[in-house]
Design a protein around this nucleic acid. Structure first.
Lengths: 230, 230
DNA sequence: TCAAAAGTGTTCGCTATACACCCATGG
DNA sequence: CCATGGGTGTATAGCGAACACTTTTGA
C-alpha cells in the first residue's frame, strides 16, 4: 500500500497558513500560542497553523484554525506576509502564508481540548518553533502600521468600552503614551464613536461613559476622502 | 517512464510567484505584460511569473523573473499579497505569491527574446489571464498606500530628476494634482533631496535643477521618529 | 473631606494651503 | 521682447500638542 499516492511532474512545496492571534487584556497586547505535541519542535510554542486543503483558500484555512483554537467563527483577519525560507521546516519544503487575527478576549472559548493553548503578553513570549519569532516580529510591525490608518483597534475591545480603555489599547499597540485630554478630544472629534446610554460604574471613582465604534460613520467619512491617522 | 516522479503523502498545491513590474514614462504609470505563448490563456497578456524552485525563496523566484524580463538584477521589490482561489488556474491548484517591482524604464533592456513583452499604461491594460486583473488592482492600491508613507517613488525615476518630474510621478501614482509651488516647498523642506550640480537644459525654457534622492538623510530622519507623508 | 479618576476648553505653534511675482532661455 | 516654464515667498486657516480646572464617587 503506497502512502505517497499524490504524484506530480515537478516538485511541489507544502503550503500552510499560520495565524497570529492578538488579544488585549486591558493593559498589554497578547498572542495565543499552541504547545506542539509532536516533532519537530515538540514541546515548543508556536502559532496555530496547518496545511492547506485543496478545496479551500488560504483565508478559509486560517479561519479554520482560528475557530479551532478560539471558538470564534468571525473575527478581523488579515493576510500580512508569506514566509518561504528553504529550510524553515525540517520535514520538507513548506511555505507558509501568515495572517493575524484580532479577537476580543472575552469572546474566546477554549477551543478544542486536544491542544494546549495559552495567552502570552508580547514581551513574555518564549522562543518559538520554526521561524515563528520572525513571523511574530513581522506581524507586530504590520499591525502597528495598519492601526495607524485604519480603525481596527476596536476589534480588540469589548463592543462597549471607555475612553481610557481605548487609550490604553492604542498605547499598548503603538508603544507610546498619549495625553489623556488630547486623546479624548481627538477621538470625539473624529466622529467614529457613538456614545452609549450606559455608563460603567467604577469603584471609588466617577462613572465612565461607554462608547461604541460606529462603522457607518467611518464608511461615510472614508468615502469623503477622509484619512484616519494616529 | 513515469513522468510524475514526485510523490507526496498529501496533496500539494503548486506555488508560483507573479511580478507586477511598474515603470513611469514621464506621464503615466505603466506595467510590463507578457503575451502567453501556451495554453491556458494562450494569446492573453499576463504578468511575468513562474513556478518556485525547491532551492529558492519566493523573493529569489520573483527576482529571477524580473531579471528575465527586464535585464535588471536589482530593483525595488515588495511582496504584497498571495492569491489562493481554488480555481484560479485550470491546470491544477496553484497558489501565487505576488510582488511588485519598481523599475526605471531607461534601465530596462529587452530581456530574453523568447517572450513577447510590452509596456501598457495602467488605463490601457487589456483583460488579463488568470486572476491577474485582480492582482493588478491589488498591486495598484498597495503601491498607492505605500508611496504615501515611504520614499519609493524615486525608484521609478532616473537617478537625477527635476522637481516637475517628481511631481508628475506622484500625481500619476496617486491620481491627484498638486500645487506646483507647494510641492516644491514641501519636497525641499523634507530634506530628502540632494541638489545636483548639473542642470537639465530645456528647449525654449529656463534650465531645470536636478535632484537626487538622499537615502542617508531619510535613514537619519526615520531614526528620529520622523514620519513621511503625502 | 479626601483621593482618584472622569470630563471639558484654551492657547500656541506648526504646517498645509492658496496664491503672485520674478527669472532664465530660445526664438 | 515675448512666450513658456522654472524658482521662490507670504498670508491664512486649521490642526495637533501642551496644559489646568472642575466634577463625581466611595470610603
Amino acid at each position: 500500500m503506497d502512502e505517497f499516492k499524490y504524484h506530480y511532474q515537478y516538485p511541489h512545496p507544502a503550503v500552510t497558513t499560520d495565524c497570529v492571534i492578538f488579544g488585549f487584556d486591558g493593559t498589554r497586547l497578547n498572542v495565543l500560542l499552541i504547545e506542539r505535541g509532536i516533532e519537530p519542535y515538540k514541546g515548543h510554542w508556536a502559532f496555530p497553523g496547518g496545511f492547506i486543503r485543496m478545496d479551500e483558500t488560504c483565508e478559509q484555512c486560517a479561519r479554520r484554525e482560528l475557530l479551532e483554537e478560539t471558538g470564534l467563527s468571525t473575527a478581523y483577519m488579515r493576510q500580512f506576509h508569506s514566509f518561504s525560507s528553504v529550510d524553515r521546516d525540517p520535514r520538507e519544503r513548506v511555505i507558509t502564508i501568515a495572517y493575524y487575527a484580532l479577537v476580543r478576549l472575552s469572546e474566546v472559548t477554549g477551543g478544542d481540548d486536544a491542544t494546549r493553548a495559552q495567552w502570552f503578553a508580547l514581551d513574555e513570549v518564549p522562543a518559538l518553533a520554526f521561524d515563528h519569532d520572525l513571523i511574530l516580529r513581522r506581524a507586530t510591525t504590520e499591525l502597528r502600521k495598519q492601526i495607524h490608518f485604519e480603525p481596527i483597534g476596536f476589534e480588540l475591545l469589548p463592543e462597549q468600552f471607555t475612553m481610557k480603555q481605548l487609550q490604553h489599547l492604542y498605547e499598548a499597540v503603538l508603544d507610546v503614551k498619549f495625553d489623556r485630554r488630547n486623546f479624548y478630544n481627538k477621538m470625539l472629534h473624529l466622529g467614529l464613536l457613538a456614545e452609549q446610554p450606559e455608563t460603567l460604574a467604577r469603584a471609588n471613582h466617577r462613572d465612565a461613559k461607554l462608547y461604541r465604534f460606529n462603522p457607518e460613520s467611518y464608511a461615510e467619512l472614508k468615502q469623503k476622502g477622509f484619512r484616519l491617522e494616529f
